[in-house]
Structure formats: C-alpha cells, structure tokens
Simulated scan of single mutants.
Amino acid sequence: MGQAQSPQQDRSGKEAIETIKKLAEKAGTCFFVTNIGKSAHSIPMALQEVDDNGTLWFISSEESTHNKNLENDKMVQLYFLNNGSYEYVFIQGNATVSKDKALIEKYYSHFADAWFDGKDDPRITVIGVKPDDGYYYETKDNKVFAIAKMVFAAVTGAKTEDGGVEGGLNV
C-alpha cells in the first residue's frame, strides 16, 4: 500500500516569488545558514522584507560569524517554518552584504535596538539574499481541516492526502 502524498505544484518566476513572499513573511524568522558543506553555521534571523524582485532582506552586524562567513562564500540556505499553519519554505541563494545607508534606513526597526545603538551604529549591515531555488509546503485547507484529515488517516489506517500542496521554487 502506497503512502499518500501532497499534490506537487512547482512554481517559477513571479509565482515562485509570490509564494516565497507569502510564506516567508508570515513566518517572519528563519534559520540562516552559511558555510554550507563545511562546518555549517546556523542562526535564527528576523526577515525584514521580501521585495518585488524576490530578494530577502535582513539586518545584521558586520562582526557576526555569518557576515564573516559571507566574505568567503556567498551561498546561503534559509529555512522558514510556520508550524501554526503547517507552512514551510526552504530557500537557497546568494547573499550580499551592504552598508548602504538608504537600505539601513529602510530596514532598521526598533527591534534591532536590542543589538545596536540605533540605526547610525557603524556595525550595522543589511544582507540581501537573492534566491536561486527552493522548496515549499503549504496547506490548501485550513489547519483544523488538515489536522482532521491526518487524524482520520491515523485512526482508520486509510491513506489520505494531508491537505497540503508542495513543490519546487525556481526564481
């Protein structure tokens, strides 16, 4: 007996960007992974925005380990999850670090005051991640309906589609 699987729906271009924007901004925080394939470094980071071009923006310190890792290797992986809605998105792409004052002004928030001495702190950088590809999973139905389907399958032994849709993202 085969295992039920969510319908596959790969997305590319603008549709992929819209999916990333919706799922990543809803989650708000991700594991930001640098130094991939070596001694990977992962840290939770708050997303500031996914812009219309699909670039994901973060505030960071130039003294951080991940900023230092990006000097040698621009490849990053981002893992967003919103367990409350059973929505997940994985992004792989290249990061650029900037000290552009206009970007800092745009993305700095009072939340960052926990790490910096205001938006004029010389350690502040903005990291932009341009995604290459990724993978997503989101519920088609609401969370309660998705849970009910899974409980029904567990109780009856029936294989049922779990109320979600998943697929690759090619930006």
Rank of each mutant, 00 (worst) to 15 (best):
residue 84 G to N: 11
residue 34 T to P: 07
residue 61 S to W: 08
residue 110 H to K: 15
residue 137 Y to T: 12
residue 117 D to Q: 13
residue 136 Y to N: 04
residue 8 Q to P: 04
residue 30 C to K: 02
residue 60 S to I: 00
residue 126 V to L: 06
residue 20 I to R: 04
residue 28 G to F: 07
residue 8 Q to C: 05
residue 141 D to C: 07
residue 33 V to Q: 05
residue 51 D to R: 02
residue 89 V to F: 01
residue 135 Y to P: 00
residue 99 K to V: 00
residue 156 T to P: 11
residue 54 G to L: 03
residue 161 E to T: 10
residue 120 D to V: 04
residue 109 S to L: 07
residue 80 F to M: 01
residue 24 A to Y: 01
residue 116 F to E: 09
residue 37 G to L: 04
residue 10 D to Y: 06
residue 111 F to M: 12
residue 60 S to T: 15
residue 112 A to V: 00
residue 127 I to A: 00
residue 43 I to L: 10
residue 108 Y to T: 09
residue 100 D to E: 13
residue 79 Y to L: 12
residue 17 I to L: 04
residue 66 H to Q: 11
residue 46 A to K: 10
residue 88 Y to V: 09
residue 130 K to F: 03
residue 12 S to C: 02
residue 22 K to S: 14
residue 90 F to E: 11
residue 156 T to R: 01
residue 114 A to R: 15
residue 120 D to Y: 06
residue 35 N to M: 08
residue 32 F to V: 07
residue 57 W to A: 03
residue 91 I to P: 02
residue 55 T to Y: 05
residue 145 F to Y: 10
residue 54 G to Y: 00
residue 102 A to T: 13
residue 154 A to K: 14
residue 152 F to I: 08
residue 80 F to I: 01
residue 100 D to R: 08
residue 126 V to I: 10
residue 148 A to Q: 10
residue 6 S to M: 15
residue 137 Y to A: 08
residue 149 K to G: 06
residue 170 N to G: 02
residue 38 K to Y: 07
residue 69 N to R: 04
residue 133 D to A: 10
residue 166 E to S: 12
residue 29 T to F: 14
residue 95 A to K: 06
residue 34 T to M: 01
residue 150 M to L: 14
residue 143 K to Q: 13
residue 28 G to P: 12
residue 108 Y to C: 09
residue 155 V to K: 08
residue 67 N to Y: 03
residue 107 Y to F: 15
residue 131 P to S: 01
residue 92 Q to W: 01
residue 55 T to W: 02
residue 100 D to V: 08
residue 149 K to N: 03
residue 50 V to T: 13
residue 79 Y to S: 13
residue 52 D to E: 15
residue 87 E to S: 15
residue 78 L to V: 06
residue 98 S to I: 03
residue 68 K to T: 10
residue 62 E to G: 14
residue 82 N to H: 13
residue 134 G to P: 06
residue 28 G to R: 03
residue 114 A to L: 11
residue 129 V to S: 01
residue 62 E to K: 14
residue 157 G to Y: 11
residue 44 P to L: 05
residue 94 N to V: 00
residue 129 V to I: 09
residue 161 E to L: 03
residue 47 L to V: 03
residue 101 K to Y: 02
residue 94 N to A: 11
residue 116 F to C: 07
residue 41 H to G: 00
residue 42 S to N: 09
residue 66 H to N: 10
residue 55 T to A: 07
residue 24 A to Q: 01
residue 49 E to V: 08
residue 85 S to R: 09
residue 26 K to H: 10
residue 119 K to F: 03
residue 6 S to G: 02
residue 8 Q to T: 11
residue 119 K to G: 05
residue 42 S to Y: 06
residue 29 T to R: 09
residue 70 L to C: 03
residue 31 F to Q: 14
residue 48 Q to K: 15
residue 25 E to I: 00
residue 75 M to T: 11
residue 114 A to M: 14
residue 85 S to G: 14
residue 156 T to D: 06
residue 158 A to G: 05
residue 55 T to S: 07
residue 120 D to Q: 12
residue 166 E to R: 13
residue 136 Y to G: 05
residue 170 N to F: 12
